[in-house]
Every structure is written in structure tokens, then in C-alpha cells.
Write a protein that binds this DNA or RNA. Sequence first.
DNA 1: ATGAAAGCGCTAACAA
DNA 2: TTGTTAGCGCTTTCAT
Lengths: 356, 356
Amino acid sequence: MEKEDGTGSRQISQKSKMVTARDVAEAASVSVSTVGRALANDPRISNQTKSVVKEAAAKLGYVESLPARLMRGVRSNLVGLMLPDVRNHFYATIAEALSDCCSANGYQLALSLANDSETEARHVKELISARAAGVFIVPSSAPTRETRDLLQNIPHVQLLRKVPSLNSAWFGINDEVCIYQGVRHLIELGHTKIAYVGGTTDNSTGRDRLAGFRRALKEFDINNSETRELLGPPSSASFGAEAIIDLLTGETLPTALITGTVRITQAMLESLHHLKMSTPDDLSVVGFGDAPEFEWWRSGLTTLRMPIQDLATMCGLWFIHQIEAKKSSDKGYQSTVPASLIVRGSTGSPSKRSSY
Amino acid sequence: MEKEDGTGSRQISQKSKMVTARDVAEAASVSVSTVGRALANDPRISNQTKSVVKEAAAKLGYVESLPARLMRGVRSNLVGLMLPDVRNHFYATIAEALSDCCSANGYQLALSLANDSETEARHVKELISARAAGVFIVPSSAPTRETRDLLQNIPHVQLLRKVPSLNSAWFGINDEVCIYQGVRHLIELGHTKIAYVGGTTDNSTGRDRLAGFRRALKEFDINNSETRELLGPPSSASFGAEAIIDLLTGETLPTALITGTVRITQAMLESLHHLKMSTPDDLSVVGFGDAPEFEWWRSGLTTLRMPIQDLATMCGLWFIHQIEAKKSSDKGYQSTVPASLIVRGSTGSPSKRSSY
DNA sequence: ATGAAAGCGCTAACAA
DNA sequence: TTGTTAGCGCTTTCAT
């Protein structure tokens, strides 16, 4: 029965130097290897010693050095997530789902925001330098040669955007069908003067979505001269608004509009507000994405909803399994989830009012 | 003039083992230290050797090992960001601003999402174990004893929420004045039956905001019996909606409502939609936060806008400076930015219609 | 059941 | 201008 008065409860460490296993060893009058084993609960160490060591460690505020362990060959618990933009609800959802997933499995997420391929390259290099266990990446349109080479050294998986030259697994949306569904809905309501405002075709999602738009028109024999395609950078704050204002203040008005990006959808809602256009009387609109506010926007925005969270969770689980099994096969694994059309108040049959 | 036909352009590394400085040294027929110096552009190394080394490094796809460097005492470029929730526009903005800021200064952001103090403790420990250079934290309501001790070992700064026992610098909003402004606006319009729906008072922001609400009422001699205070968990998806539905379907209706959380503001908009209540005729509402959709919601939501992005950027810059200067003073540094009231269509004088 | 010692990949002090 | 060497903190044989 010892009194715990003296050295006990003070500010644990003075921020001076990190406490090492050696310090603990000295405090417990054992060797460093015993400390290591005791803390790892090695069965060869007596319970007696274990408790002595653990107590000493706790008292000193010992926290094992990950860098040192990594050097010994222990695999890192750091995984990178490379995103173009976290303020986008789409990507924020992914970040959250992956973070939860990683956290639940003992991994730590390093978030890297990169819109251009240079920044992307830098971040990938840093992750490799840190010997991260893997990386989730929504790749830029044209990753650097360096990025591509670097990624061959580390387990990784692509999300949403697919760059074939990366030669890795991919989890994404069925973008082509997604937009197709939206356009078909408009056509079935009787629209023919349909405009699509979406991302440029320099990445896979932009290409697939545009393809979906065109396929729907073709299947229903819509005259090309009546439709419009406006493409711009998918993460630009300004493009969407400008394109839509241009479109809706031009001479030949469409009767329906479908967007191909979350950001552009938001820009559309904003523009419609400024132009004081009513939906679906002046214009029927279908929005890409499923941000919560789309539900209560006016009488509801008809949207293309994607199970982004499920997608991310699946991707996370699969990837962690992959890392831990360290099978280098399954490079070509691809998984797509379908989007669903949620019909709300913003779409209706073209009214007589609509001019051309 | 050598031909570059043979060993040149192949898949750089076979994912087998990382290329080390030693490998590069052998390839360039120099010593490891020469490799290190050449790659660090040490002036003592001849340009001749430098280029030989760099070429070899590039050819082999060498990426320096951060863990090894860390062990040598180089400071980590990893900084942690602990957030309750990235899907919240508020926090997403912070994440983005800090990421940019870190990235611009050569740091890497590790994102940790933690809503409870247990998870928080785990993540803080991991960051310390990784020997992170510092951590930005929006602390949970009641950080663990362990978390608090651990944080004393690492430079850190609190964002938004302030836990005094952490004994560290803090960057936040002037929450008290913020809500005060909103309430005063309502009072000046003639409202007295005012309800506040906000976060619980177990963290500083919840306390300060409620205090602002009460101060305004007191200053203008509003009868307490006419007002309502509904408090709940700030990050709960369900609380806000339920509280507001309860409030607005109850017997004694307020004529004005002010929210104290971004999430609750969103829940309010949703609830108002479902209840088909019109603003400001049935009810005047002031929303906390400044998500983009608030501008085009109906005739615009009167909001309390906070320069969150500036706050985060300032915090990031200050903190990085702090880390690099490694002065352990300034523990008590506090910085607050003011919120501003943006008056839009959702607030007006109480109409006769409003019952009680 | 425990200790001694080697070595992970790198940097820096000391030699040459 | 370059090489040699000694550790950083840890895990892991190999001894005891």
C-alpha cells in the first residue's frame, strides 16, 4: 500500500522531448525490449512485469513513435484521400463515409485537396514519402506522368472519375445511364428543346454524362438543332451561373434544362432565382445530385440522386480488405452504383407560354 | 552521346520494395551521404555529381522515406484537423481553407472526424504517435483527461469551440454578439414572441449563443414568458426538425424564430416546407450560418453570416507561423471575427394573422 | 521470462 | 568535394 502523493499527478510532460521506450524502460528498471513486449501484450512477459511497465508508461505519458515503427516494417495506418473540393456536398459525403470507414478499421485519413495535376502530383508524392498504406483518389482530368508512375508503387483506388492509364480499381456512378434517365423523363413529358449544362469532357464523368444526354436524344429522334450542350469546368464557381444566364437570356429558349454537375445544379437554382423564372411553367429543370436543399427548393427539384454514401462505404471496405490481404490482383475491379430519378415539382409538360 | 534505348522507360518500380537512398547510391556509384546531399542541393556537392545522382534517383523512382527523416529529428509536415462533421458547410469551409493554407506552406492535412470524446482521444493519440507537427481542433464538449494531457505535448489551436482547460490559443466567432444581433433585429421589427432553437450549452458556442439570445431579451425588456428556448445536440440530424415541428404545431405559436446552428437552420427550412408555413407572414425567421442556398430560399433567408473562411485562413497562417517559430508562448492567444446580419425576405413585422 | 544487439533509412558531425 | 560513422526509437532474432 503505497501513498500516491509525491510524483503522481502533475502536468504529464513538459513538451520538451518525447518520452521514448527507453525512458519507460529505465523507469520500470527493465530493458527496452521488455517494454516493447509488455506494451504489445506479448504472452512471454509475466503479468507482474506487464503492469509495472504499463504503469510507468502511463505515468510518463509515453506514446509510441509511429515513424520508428514504420521503419521497422510495420505497415502504416495512414491512407490518403485526394479530392478536388470538400465544399461540394458530393465530395464531403465521400470524405465523411471514408473517414468513418477508415476510423472503424484503425486507419487514419489524410485529406489532400487538389484541382490541378501539379498539386495532385505533389500530394501523391508526399503520401508515398510518408509510406501511406494506400490512397483513394478522385483523379484530375490528366494526371501527370509522375503521378501515374508513383501510384504504381502504392495500393490505390479511383473514385467517380476513371483514368484508365492509372490501371487500378474504380468505384463510381453509372453516369451515362444517370443523365439518360433524366433526359428521357423530360422527353416523355413532351420536351424537345432541351439544354444540357455540364462538365467538360476531359474526364470520364463529363464524357459519360454527355453521352447519356446524346443517347436519349438519339433514341427518341429529337432534332439536334433544337437542343443545346454547354460545357465548362466542373468545379468552377462561375461557369455554371454564366452559362445558364447566357442560355436563358438568349434568343432561342429551351423548354427544359438538365445539369450535369452538383455545382452547376446549385448555380442553376441561383440563376433561376435571379432571373425570376418559374418552374416548371417557364422551364422544366432536372438537377444532378441530391443535396438536402433540393427537396424543399420551391415545389421540389426533380433530381438525379446517387447513393454516394453507400458507394464510398463500399469502396472503403473493399479497399481496406484489399490492403490487408495485399493481393495485387483485382487491379481491374470496377463497381458502379446506379442513380435514380426523383421526380418532384420542377418538371412538367412544356407550357404554351414557352417561346422559341 | 549515349543512346537511351535499353533500360530507360519501363514501369518504374515493381511495387516490391521501396527504393532507398542506398540503392540510388549504388546506381550512381557514390555514398549514401552524397546522395542525401545531392538531393538536398547541398552546395558542397559538384554539379557533375548532383546530376548523376538525380538522374539515378529519377530512374529508380526514388522517394525519400519520411519516417526515416522524422527519426532524424526533421519536423513532420503533417498537421491534424479534428472536426465533428465535414458534411456541414461550416466545417467543410474550414477544412478547405486550412487544407489550402497548409498545402501552400508545405504541410499536409490529416482529417479526423470525431463526435464523441472517445474517438477524439483515439485520434489525438494517433496524431501524436505520428509525431504530427500540430493539430487544429474543434474540440468535443468534454475532452477526455487523456486528450487534454496529450495535447499538452503538441502545438495545437482550438477553432470555434473553446475549452479553457485545454489551455491553448483559440480562433472563433463572436457567438454572443452574433445571436444578439439577430434577436435585436427581430425585436426592432416588433416581435416579442421569439423562439430560439439552438445547440446545448455543454460547449462554449452553445452557451455564448444562448447568452446572446437572453441578453437581447433582457435589454429590450421582453417578457420571459413569451419566449422559448429549445436546445439539443448541435450535430444531430433529427433534433432540429423535431424541435421545430413541435414548436410550430404547439398551442402557443411564436411570431419569430431564430436558430443557433447551421444544421438546425437547414432543418428549419425543411420543416417550414413541410408545414407549409409562409415567411414572414406566418413566421419571421433568422437563420444561423450562410450556406449558399440561403440566399435563394423563397425570398431569401435573413441570416447571420460569419467570415468562416477568413477565420480559418487566419488561423492556419498564425498556427503555421507559430509552429515554425516554435515559441511556446501565446498560449492564451484569442481571436474572434464578428458575424454580420444579412437581412433578406424572411423577416418582417409580426402580422395580425399570427395567433397565440 | 528477460536482455543484448542488430538494423530499418536517413542526416549530420567528423574525417579525409 | 566526398566518404565514414553514429545514432534517431523501435521490433525482432538470438542468447541467456
